Simulated scan of single mutants.
Amino acid sequence: MMIDIQLLTTPLDTTVCQKWVEAPDKGGLVLFVGTVRNHTQGKEVLRLDFEAYEPMAISEMRKIAMTITERWPGSRIAIHHRVGQLAIGDIAVIIAVGTAHRAAAFAACQYAIDTLKQTVPIWKKEIFADGEVWVAAHP
């Protein structure tokens, strides 16, 4: 199986993920990079804190990748998520998908990030100048 699942406390690297999904038979490579933005709902964000239940988070990310390899056979996928304290501009998540054709790569990448947001036990706390709030991970 061509999957790379990681939950890291260190900065994420787009090059590592891209290299993982590259292959001579992969004509479509899609890379989603989620970064920490400086605002939400009209409030200035100073930083984010991510926490995860690691064994389950890894397991759920692996399920996402396995589903992708079943729906889009021959796919290569990397899902890397960061935990800990992140500053504005830091990368929080990278999803990279390599498939034979672009349509499958886009669809698989979209499926991965949407499903990750709904099922993976990773929680985000937004830190503001006047307080903080845990954001519901699963709407």
Rank of each mutant, 00 (worst) to 15 (best):
M1G: 14
M2D: 15
M2R: 12
M2E: 13
I3Q: 15
D4S: 14
D4L: 13
Q6M: 08
L8Y: 00
L8D: 04
T9G: 11
T9F: 00
T9N: 13
T10R: 12
P11F: 10
L12N: 10
L12F: 11
T14K: 07
T14C: 13
T15I: 09
K19Q: 15
W20K: 11
V21G: 06
V21Q: 07
E22H: 06
E22A: 13
E22W: 00
A23H: 10
A23K: 09
P24E: 13
P24I: 09
K26Q: 11
G27M: 06
L29A: 07
L29C: 14
L29K: 05
L31D: 00
L31Y: 00
F32T: 07
F32Y: 15
V33D: 00
G34F: 07
G34M: 04
G34T: 09
T35E: 13
T35V: 12
V36T: 15
R37H: 13
T40S: 14
T40M: 08
G42N: 12
K43I: 08
E44A: 15
V45A: 08
V45C: 05
L46W: 03
L46P: 00
R47A: 15
R47Q: 14
D49S: 08
F50R: 03
F50G: 01
A52F: 03
E54C: 01
E54H: 03
M56N: 03
M56G: 07
M56P: 04
M56F: 12
I58N: 06
E60G: 01
M61S: 03
R62A: 14
R62I: 00
R62F: 00
K63Y: 02
I64M: 08
A65G: 04
I68P: 01
E70C: 07
E70I: 04
E70W: 01
R71M: 11
R71A: 04
P73A: 05
G74C: 08
S75M: 05
R76E: 04
I77T: 12
I77N: 08
A78N: 01
I79P: 05
H80C: 00
R82M: 05
G84T: 07
G84L: 10
G84M: 11
G84A: 09
G84P: 07
Q85F: 02
Q85Y: 02
L86Y: 12
A87Y: 00
G89T: 11
G89K: 09
G89H: 10
D90L: 13
I91W: 02
A92R: 02
I94D: 02
I95W: 06
A96L: 00
V97F: 06
V97M: 08
T99V: 09
T99F: 06
T99G: 04
H101F: 09
H101A: 13
R102G: 06
R102M: 14
A103P: 00
A103D: 12
A105Q: 10
F106V: 10
A107Y: 01
A108L: 12
C109S: 15
C109D: 05
Y111Q: 11
I113P: 03
D114I: 01
T115W: 09
T115F: 04
L116C: 07
L116I: 06
Q118D: 11
T119Q: 12
V120S: 04
V120H: 03
I122E: 04
I122A: 04
I122W: 02
I122C: 05
W123H: 10
K124C: 05
K124F: 01
E126S: 09
I127M: 14
F128R: 09
F128P: 03
